[in-house]
């Protein structure tokens, strides 16, 4: 996946001015940056749910112009809950995943007790775990994840990190989270968003230099 020349402004505020990013299956790109630097905006633009002033996104030889081009290629886990609250969990799993992945998720000990509940009956943490499992097991080439560890109990964070590593064998990941340590643990490459652009971080000390960590 190649992401080039992404520009996005909200009114007079230029959020993204000079974004270049690439990701290959097998890679986990950790996207870091202070609040308001445009991490979520960038993920939404790559996914196609938000239009950009200018962008060039290519997957393989296919140029991605919007959501319709992304079908079966890119999935996105947004920051906020996205499951329809009127559908039963088992039906959501059936709709979201192929047969094999649906069976894997249904067999998960955390998910089993939820299967007959509707999504609105789940707690925030339960919903988040289900959403993460659905997106991670989806049959696509690239997965964009926005704050996956938000609202997740510490005990499950390691499981999720392991699952992301496991799934990254065949898929490319771009992950952003405010807890940078989780990202540093799993990322194969770190990219810092700064002043509307992207900086490749080779050593963790560079995060201090760019003023991201104290």
């Amino acid at each position: 996946m190649q992401v080039e020349s992404v520009m996005k402004s909200f009114g007079t505020k230029h959020v993204l001015t000079d974004v270049f990013l690439s990701c290959r299956p097998g890679e986990i790109i950790g996207l870091l940056g202070k609040n308001g630097t445009g991490k979520s905006t960038l993920l939404k633009i790559i996914f196609g749910s938000l239009s950009a002033d200018q962008k060039f996104i290519k997957i393989g030889h296919k140029i991605i112009r919007g959501l319709l081009n992304n079908r079966n290629l890119v999935n996105y886990l947004p920051q906020n809950h996205f499951l329809p609250n009127h559908i039963k969990v088992s039906t959501i799993i059936y709709l979201f995943c192929d047969k094999r992945n649906a069976s894997l998720i249904k067999a998960n000990d955390l998910i089993k007790p939820m299967l007959n509940k509707k999504s609105k009956q789940l707690s925030g943490g339960e919903k988040r775990i289900l959403e993460i499992l659905l997106v991670l097991h989806s049959n696509v080439r690239y997965i964009l994840i926005d704050e996956p560890f938000n609202g997740i109990d510490p005990i499950y964070k390691e499981d999720i990190k392991n699952l992301i590593k496991e799934q990254s064998i065949n898929k490319g990941f771009i992950i952003t989270d405010h807890d940078y340590r989780n990202i540093l643990d799993i990322a194969t490459r770190i990219i810092l968003m700064h002043d509307g652009g992207t900086k490749v971080i080779l050593k963790n000390d560079e995060l201090k230099i760019w003023g991201y960590i104290p």
């Binding site: 749910s49 919007g66 319709l68 809950h81 996205f82 499951l83 329809p84 997106v135």
Partner: peptide, 15 residues
């Protein structure tokens, strides 16, 4: 009320 729910359908390739 639920703009976030659109993402469920977006992920299925529906815009």
């Amino acid at each position: 009320r639920n703009p976030g729910e659109y993402y469920f359908y977006y992920n299925m390739g529906l815009c």
